[in-house]
Design a protein around this nucleic acid. Sequence first.
DNA 1: ATTGGCACTCAGTCAGATCGAGTGCTAATA
DNA 2: TATTAGCACTCGATCTGACTGAGTGCCAAT
Lengths: 340, 340
Amino acid sequence: MVSERSLAVLRAIVQDYVASREPVGSKTIVERHAFGVSAATIRNDMALLEEEELIAAPHTSSGRIPTDKGYRVFVDQLTDVRPLTQAQRHAIETFLGESSDLDELLARTVRLIAQLTKQLAVVQYPSFGSARVRHVELVSLAPDRVLCILIADSGQVEQRLAELEQPVEEQVLSGLRARLNDIAGGRTMADAAEALAAEAARTDRRHAAVLHTLAATLAEQARVQRQDRLVVAGAANLVRTEQDFAGSILAVIEAIEEQVVLLRLFGEMSADDHAVTVRIGRENASFGLGETSVVSSAFEIPGRDVSRLGIVGPTRMDYSNSMAAVRAVARYLSRTLGES
Amino acid sequence: MVSERSLAVLRAIVQDYVASREPVGSKTIVERHAFGVSAATIRNDMALLEEEELIAAPHTSSGRIPTDKGYRVFVDQLTDVRPLTQAQRHAIETFLGESSDLDELLARTVRLIAQLTKQLAVVQYPSFGSARVRHVELVSLAPDRVLCILIADSGQVEQRLAELEQPVEEQVLSGLRARLNDIAGGRTMADAAEALAAEAARTDRRHAAVLHTLAATLAEQARVQRQDRLVVAGAANLVRTEQDFAGSILAVIEAIEEQVVLLRLFGEMSADDHAVTVRIGRENASFGLGETSVVSSAFEIPGRDVSRLGIVGPTRMDYSNSMAAVRAVARYLSRTLGES
DNA sequence: ATTGGCACTCAGTCAGATCGAGTGCTAATA
DNA sequence: TATTAGCACTCGATCTGACTGAGTGCCAAT
């Protein structure tokens, strides 16, 4: 059984290793941490920890480094997610407080997280939520191509191009515009999608085909969650920590560009309690991200669906600080912003 | 004076070095290229080229590598920008042919370029051009916050939040909406901006302040070029070519995230002839990009302002292929798309 | 102008030798 | 029983010197 002190030793090892990137030995520990015992005792504890596979030695007779399992225990039991410093809290408020529209708020948020954690930051775009349709606009780009624009009263704007089977005149389009606005206006996105789909199904009118296409397009559009987009910042931090990624940073960069991988990962974590979730190293192996850890939290902006934000970095990272920052920012968005 | 053959030697050196990443010596050249002369002769030519600072030796008695100046001469005089292969042309057509809206077209374009060149690709968002205002929509988010949405008949949608000094009721907003549509509807973006500004200046009405704010916001919005946004793809290629960047890839990654640097660079190249422009190595030093080359070309999508696209990569790159790809894509967008 | 020949240079590599941080184990100790 | 001091041992890291070979620069001959 791992004793109390052994765990303290594990904590020390994680902290020192994260700080120095060097395997940490028994002597270093007694020097830097005020355990009241000798190096030999620490060595005994380390042997224990090694048996439990919480730490490992890169080569015989060198210091130890934490294993993924070791980090896991550290994160679950040993970390005191220390609250942010006054300066950091202040930074959050001044940085996010005066954002105007959603796009800017998210852009600032992600940059802030990147800056606080010195890691790659990611924010998932929160979708409509229970917003209602404000206005539907049709713009004829060519006789058989119509741009459908959907404006929600939350301020969200979605656009999509509809290809028609037959050309349609401007006047007809005006009529359709009015009719679509009648149907969808004021409804929630979900309701509107349904009503539009129903309307599209009725084909007993002139220009039914056109109407059908447009309504279907808009319905689809109303249904589609914007949650499939990511806002990213701090890629430079990835390069900075490159040595910590064994294979290479490449898988991560690709995952970021693809977005799909990260979105699936976020989706999997989407137990919507607002606690900070950490996935460590091989736990992400199925996503092609081996040496990578993800720290994330759900957040919820008033009028929008709950979504996720977080950071992606090497397994060897300052979990304490990362978790604190992610939690603080998520809370700020969810609470402080919600109250106002 | 550098002889004809010396330049051929330079070309050989550039090509071999780009292919192998290794300093190339006289023997390698006679082996791989069918010059009808001996290695000793090549050495004489190389001495010449070195005197002209077109090539340099990393250390005494090792092969030579091209200098920035050498690349310059290569690009200006020695490259035959060979047309793309049939397969590549085909890729362009199938990949870009069926894009629907502008956002998607640009997203595809940038991914295509990244794929063709194996470099980081960048496309500058083309702005409105001579599009006309289609519709103005106002959405009240809070009593004193109004989201202004501007829809152009080109399909472009711009949104911006206006903070009002005093709350305004929904009814008043409707009136304003109608009035703004009267004023701006159908006008070109520039005209609309002017008219709106003029309207905003007249303060002899009830709710003048509101109108003023809104009109000013819209005017600003109509004027603002979207040309200050970049679409990026292929960051993984940067990592792949990392060894070629002396210091580190970091400056480039930061420049990409900042966008400002690249936009300034594009701006500087904006002589709007549609030829392919190449900036090599130290020529970009003032932008903090030392080991970096930029290959770009102007392009013009019907109904939009001329804009730029290109790639960013290490000085040691396949200029011939890069230039061909950039040129082909820019031409495809400008011509083929324009004709249809 | 070109070429063959030759001495010279120097980065890269390999083999030993050495160093030292760190371990594991044992026997003594509180 | 838990802790500790002591000590032999391991093994990566570092240094050294020798060697190799690709490549140059120069010179004399063609």
